[in-house]
Design a protein around this nucleic acid. Structure first.
Lengths: 192, 192
DNA sequence: GAATAACTAGATCGATTGTTCTAGTAGAGT
DNA sequence: ACTCTACTAGAACAATCGATCTAGTTATTC
């Protein structure tokens, strides 16, 4: 008999909620069990320990992001249009997993060495995808920045910061925000 | 006899280090005391409790930022030049208090209601300074964005994110990064 | 129907948490 | 000499932490 995937994922869902709200250290196993009205044993039945639970969340959500972005980055089309598409997909995927991505960034320093390494690696992968894109765009004379790494940090800044202030219950539409962010990344705030 | 300001501030310094490294929840009073080789009582002598210690750090560092920014924002000069100066000062001040500002953003959700309110208020103040600047620049036809609030979030994104990746020990100079960020904010990544 | 694996509740573990209490020392002002 | 305040160390507190252990209940397979 294999483990009950459904009950495991239910647990994962509630854990994401609590981690996103109160952080990794701020959320206890008991909190998680209580929130879904099960016993502590139930949590430990599906996950070896707290850290494994955390890593399962990563796998469940953020892990696949680099691959998805690479697909777009290496896809067909004109370089600049493809880059715009990359931004859009990145924004959409991040929004889809807003809570998890939030966790991902908020508590990165609070993990065990193993967790830290995985975390850093995913971030590095994403950064590299962008730097590579910039190099390509640069060869077409489409990039103004001198330091491509700083540029990548700046672009990631707008995307990742968006996850902090965006409120799904708010009155701004996602499409409106996406367009505004993409326009900002491409041309900044100034006219001309 | 008044409280020994020097020993208090020493305590504050070490607390900033630990909070920045391991977070608010991840740092215990004992950790702080041990790091500076004093007793727990010593910490409680200078600060009522853990939260007051946190708030003291805020006061010690981040609290004055809005006022400094307002000074520049309401200063003399051409609107766009003044705005550039605003960005520069903001970047400089944030770098000066990098550890504290990091704490400020990382653990904002982990505070008591009182702490949360103070935290949110400072962030709101800063946001408003930028939105006001954009309104002024807009009246001179210098801003391309439609939604000024989103624009403000994007600008703050680049500044605050910078604090996450910037390594004072690294080989990039601060001035180089500042210029690159300011250029990005004003004109984005594209040529033309 | 026996055997095996999946799952569960609840007590319990030692360690650590924020905080308080007790009992003091040091030094300045009177 | 006495008093008051500033300061200190270290034991002690109840609560909570991640984790484990015991003892059980289901459900499936042969």
């Amino acid at each position: 008999m294999t483990k009950n995937r459904y009950r495991r994922d239910e647990l994962l869902e509630i854990a994401i909620d609590l981690f996103a709200e109160k952080g990794y250290v701020g959320t206890s196993i008991r909190d998680i069990a209580k929130a879904i009205d099960r016993s502590v044993s139930n949590v430990y039945h599906y996950f070896e320990n707290k850290e494994e639970l955390w890593l399962a969340i990563l796998e469940y959500s953020v892990q696949g992001l680099p691959e998805k972005l690479r697909m777009v980055a290496h896809g067909e089309g004109e370089p600049l249009e493809r880059f715009k598409k990359l931004l859009k997909v990145h924004l959409e995927e991040s929004t889809k997993h807003q809570r998890e991505t939030k966790i991902f960034f908020i508590d990165e320093e609070r993990l065990s060495p193993k967790g830290k390494i995985i975390n850093k690696q995913i971030q590095k992968e994403i950064l590299d995808i962008y730097v590579e894109q910039f190099r390509l765009l640069q060869s077409h004379n489409l990039v103004r920045a001198r330091n491509l790494k700083i540029l990548a940090f700046n672009v990631l800044a707008t995307i990742n910061w968006f996850l902090r202030w965006y409120d799904p219950e708010g009155n701004m539409s996602k499409e409106e925000i996406y367009d505004e962010i993409i326009d900002f990344v491409l041309h900044g705030m100034c006219t001309k």
